[in-house]
């Protein structure tokens, strides 16, 4: 069994790296929003990308894994829940809106049409990703 103080040190460092990584992410998003409000959209995009690049750089080059197997499991479950929610929305929304428009009862607003196509695109990507995972050599 290892030394307790070095183990605590390991956990403290891991927590610190995680905070830095998520801090960069939040800084990127906040910076983008603030720069956009201040009418500097190009600078905002640069800050946004820098924030994400910083997040992935810390994650990639941190001396330890910043996300353990339970983090991955939670991410998988949350992704599954999100997909289920999107599936329900798509199954209910798409045919209903299309049918109502077809019978001249309702005209689909562009934003709803965009959402439907986005959901459909999401599932198309999911299908491709699933098949790629399933049949990868």
């Amino acid at each position: 069994m290892a030394n307790n103080s070095s183990e605590h040190d390991w956990l403290t460092r891991r927590t610190r790296y995680r905070r830095v990584a998520f801090g960069l992410l939040v800084a990127g998003i906040t910076g983008f929003a603030l720069a956009d409000v201040a009418n500097y959209p190009v600078i905002g995009v640069a800050i946004y990308w820098l924030g994400f690049a910083g997040f992935f750089a810390v994650r990639r080059w941190a001396p330890m894994e910043l996300f353990d197997e339970r983090d991955c499991s939670l991410e998988r479950q949350a992704s599954y829940d999100t997909l289920r929610l999107a599936a329900v929305a798509l199954v209910l929304l798409a045919p209903t809106a299309a049918t109502l428009e077809e019978v001249g009862y309702y005209e689909i607003p562009p934003i709803v049409e965009g959402a439907i196509w986005s959901y459909a695109g999401l599932f198309a990507v999911f299908g491709v990703a699933y098949l790629a995972r399933r049949y990868r050599p």
């Binding site: 390991w10 956990l11 891991r14 353990d68 197997e69």
Partner: peptide
Amino acid sequence: QADLAAAVSVSRQT
């Protein structure tokens, strides 16, 4: 929990 977590390289929450 923190000692064990560090020993097996996972978080204390795990």
